[in-house]
């Protein structure tokens, strides 16, 4: 309070004397004056502050996971910013691990068949993504490029469906998937979808479809009509034009929808956890695998952490690769009619 008052007074006297002021400024005021003179510096500083903030908040959990994973099991009750028991001086004694436990990343696969869980998740996510992209492409084509009565209400309906919480679908679906259906008997062991990948692919496709429909509708509506007409004159059907011309030209949009769907399915917990009995042979995804490390008397937090990291890596790599594609598609896709 007193600081503000003295500041005010100083400004006042300067105006009054109307001479070049030689104010003695506080630290903060000096900084403010500098930034007014050179705003680019401030923007840069703000940019770095924000970047570092978001980097820390996103990457710290991974760092923490990594630390927990590396902590030897006997030290698990005492996890710090470095793995408990970490001692660089051990390196001199020939202990390359320096008191940590990198072997945990192998344990992940020896305690349970974690690779099988990863494979299951991968298959479920891939199949769902393919189904979603194909069906959402058809819907996106219709919503984005055709004019027909009732288009608005129909899109609204799609939007409304996406507002339902997935949990609302669970009980009826679980009931349905546990019913033995005779027609399915030749394909599925006991004629029910429970404990099969279909029990997850079907609801996931439905739940994540609306988002992809909206993304693809926007992209497909921007492709000039002339290109589609030309393709149809040259000898494709409407469907052929969609897959040969419209989809390739909307590659960034298709990639975005695909990546978002893939990640969402790969991360999904609720249906993944409840639609199988949790064993790897019954198509249980990664979530179930990680929970398998929780025994009756002991929870292997370090192995769980290691498994989480192992599970995230393939998707992280995939997203980085796909992102490059998305960006290159965005910059190279300059359309001209």
């Amino acid at each position: 309070m007193s600081l503000e008052q003295t500041d005010g007074q100083k400004v006042y006297t300067n105006d009054d004397d109307s001479e070049e002021p030689e104010i003695d400024r506080g630290l903060f005021e000096a900084w403010a004056a500098k930034t007014i003179k050179n705003p680019k510096r401030t923007y840069k500083a703000l940019f770095y502050t924000a970047t570092i903030f978001f980097l820390v908040t996103t990457l710290f959990p991974f760092y923490w996971l990594f630390m927990v994973a590396l902590t030897p099991r006997r030290n698990l009750q005492d996890v710090g910013l470095v793995p408990s028991g970490f001692d660089p001086s051990l390196l001199a004694q020939g202990d390359l691990t320096m008191g940590t436990n990198p072997g945990v990343f192998l344990e992940v696969f020896t305690i349970i068949p974690f690779h099988r869980y990863m494979f299951n998740s991968f298959v479920i996510a891939t199949v769902t993504t393919i189904v979603v992209i194909i069906v959402a492409s058809l819907a996106g084509y219709v919503f984005g490029r055709l004019r027909f009565p009732g288009k608005g209400p129909l899109m609204l309906l799609v939007l409304i469906v996406s507002f339902f919480p997935p949990a609302a679908f669970f009980i009826p679906l679980n009931d349905l998937f546990n019913t033995n259906i005779d027609i399915l008997r030749p394909i599925l062991a006991d004629g029910s979808l429970y404990n099969t990948p279909y029990a997850m692919v079907v609801p996931f496709s439905a739940i994540f479809m609306p988002l992809s429909i909206f993304i693809l509708t926007t992209f497909y509506s921007q492709i000039p009509d002339g290109l589609e007409d030309a393709a149809r004159i040259e000898g494709t059907t409407r469907l052929g034009a969609l897959f040969r011309v419209i989809m390739p030209l909307s590659a960034p949009g298709v990639a975005t929808a695909g990546v978002l769907t893939f990640i969402a399915v790969y991360n999904e917990f609720f249906f993944s956890f409840l639609m199988t009995d949790g064993s790897a042979d019954n198509w249980a995804p990664i979530v179930d695998g990680i929970l398998q490390y929780q025994g009756q008397y002991e929870v292997l937090f370090n192995v769980m952490a290691a498994a989480s990291i192992v599970g995230v890596l393939p998707v992280a790599i995939l997203v980085v690769v796909a992102q490059e594609k998305i960006v290159s598609g965005l910059t190279a896709g300059a359309l001209k009619e």
Binding site: P224, T237, V245, P248
Partner: peptide, 20 residues
């Protein structure tokens, strides 16, 4: 009949090259 089964050709007002 769809355009592909009519055996016709058409030159468009705007150039319709497939950019990809």
């Amino acid at each position: 009949l769809p355009p592909k089964d009519r055996g016709i050709s058409m030159v468009f007002q705007n150039i319709a090259l497939f950019p990809h």
